[in-house]
C-alpha cells in the first residue's frame, strides 16, 4: 500500500512538470493550429538562464526563477511577432520544418554558450530537506512542484473562465474568423497566449530540472513526451492536458517501479490504445 502511495506521489510530481511544460503547447496548438516543435526550447532556455543566474551570479533560487521566466517571455514576444506570425500561415509540413529549424537554433545557442553538459540549477537547502508524509519521506522539492502545478491549473482556470481575455481566447479557439469579425484582436490574443505558454514552459523546465535534467538537447529529447501529453489531453484543452499529464506521469512512474522490464512498452501501448479509441484525445473536440 505504502509503495503504491509513494508511486502516486512521485507520479503526480512528474505529471505536474509535464503539465506545466505542455499546457502552453496545447493552447497554442489548439488556438493557432501550429505544430510548434520548438516549444520545449522555451523550457530549455528558462532552465539555462536559471542555471546561469544561480551558478554564476549567485542569485538565490526564487528571484532567479522569476527573472528567468520573465526573460523567456520577453524573448518569446519578438519571436512571435517576427517568426511565428508567418509560420501560422504555412501548411503543416512547412510548420514542422520551420519549428525544427528554430529548435535547432535554440539548441545551438545554448550549446555555444554553455556546452552540452547537464546544467544544474542551484536550489535552496530547504528543497532537499526530507519531509515525512507518514508512509514515506520525500524531498520538499516534490511538494513544491505539486503545489506549483495546482497553482498553475487554478490560475489558468481563473484566467480562461473568469476574465475578458479568457472569453476572447475561448472564442478564438472555437472560431478564429468569427471572433475576429466580432472585433476581437486575435493577433494580440495569439501573442499573449504564445508568451504565456512560453513562460509556463520555462517555469516547468526550471522546477522540473531534477526530474528532466536541463541540457542543450533537452527540447529534442523530451519533445515526444510533451507532444504525447498534448495529443492524449486533446488540443486546446487545459483540463485535458492536466488529466493527461497526471495520468501519464503516474502510469510511467508505475511502469518503471513495478514492471521495470516492460514498463516503457506498457506505457506506449497504453497511449496507442487511448488514441485509437479517442482520436481527439481525452477532452478534445472533433475538428
Amino acid at each position: 500500500m505504502s509503495v503504491l502511495l509513494s508511486i502516486l506521489v512521485d507520479g503526480v510530481a512528474y505529471g505536474m512538470i509535464l503539465f506545466m511544460i505542455s499546457v502552453g503547447l496545447s493552447i497554442t496548438m489548439g488556438l493557432m493550429r501550429v505544430i510548434n516543435l520548438a516549444h520545449g526550447g522555451f523550457a530549455l532556455i528558462g532552465g539555462a538562464i536559471a542555471h546561469v543566474l544561480t551558478m554564476f551570479f549567485g542569485l538565490s533560487f526564487i528571484p532567479a526563477s522569476v527573472l528567468a521566466v520573465m526573460l523567456v517571455v520577453a524573448a518569446a514576444a519578438p519571436m512571435e511577432r517576427l517568426l511565428y506570425r508567418h509560420i501560422y500561415g504555412f501548411d503543416e509540413l512547412g510548420q514542422v520544418l520551420a519549428t525544427v529549424g528554430i529548435v535547432f537554433l535554440m539548441i545551438a545557442t545554448v550549446n555555444l554558450f554553455l556546452g552540452s553538459t547537464i546544467l544544474p540549477i542551484r536550489s535552496p537547502q530547504l528543497f532537499a530537506a526530507p519531509v515525512d508524509l507518514g508512509f514515506r519521506t520525500l524531498p520538499f522539492h516534490r511538494l513544491v512542484v505539486i503545489a506549483a502545478g495546482i497553482l498553475v491549473l487554478a490560475g489558468l482556470w481563473l484566467l480562461i473562465e473568469k476574465t475578458r481575455f479568457g472569453i476572447y481566447l475561448r472564442a478564438a479557439v472555437d472560431n478564429k474568423n468569427a471572433a475576429a469579425s466580432l472585433g476581437i484582436n486575435t493577433a494580440r490574443i495569439y501573442l499573449v497566449a504564445f508568451c504565456l505558454g512560453a513562460g509556463l514552459a520555462a517555469l516547468g523546465g526550471i522546477l522540473g530540472a531534477e526530474l528532466l535534467p536541463v541540457e542543450a538537447y533537452y527540447p529534442l529529447r523530451y519533445m515526444v513526451l510533451f507532444l504525447i501529453v498534448v495529443a492524449v489531453g486533446g488540443l486546446g484543452s487545459v483540463l485535458g492536458s492536466f488529466c493527461a499529464a497526471l495520468g501519464l506521469g503516474i502510469l510511467d512512474t508505475f511502469g518503471r517501479y513495478m514492471l521495470p522490464d516492460v514498463g516503457t512498452i506498457f506505457f506506449f501501448l497504453a497511449i496507442i490504445m487511448v488514441l485509437a479509441l479517442r482520436p481527439n484525445g481525452l477532452m478534445g473536440r472533433a475538428q
Binding site: 496548438m29 505544430i35 515526444v224 507532444l227 504525447i228 498534448v230 495529443a231 492524449v232 488540443l235 506506449f268 501501448l269 497511449i271 496507442i272 488514441l275 485509437a276 482520436p279 481527439n280 484525445g281 475538428q287
Partner: peptide
C-alpha cells in the same frame, strides 16, 4: 493529423 503522428511515434 496529430493522433496519427503520435501513434506512429508510439509504435
Amino acid at each position: 493529423g496529430m493522433t496519427l503522428l503520435m501513434i506512429s511515434i508510439a509504435v
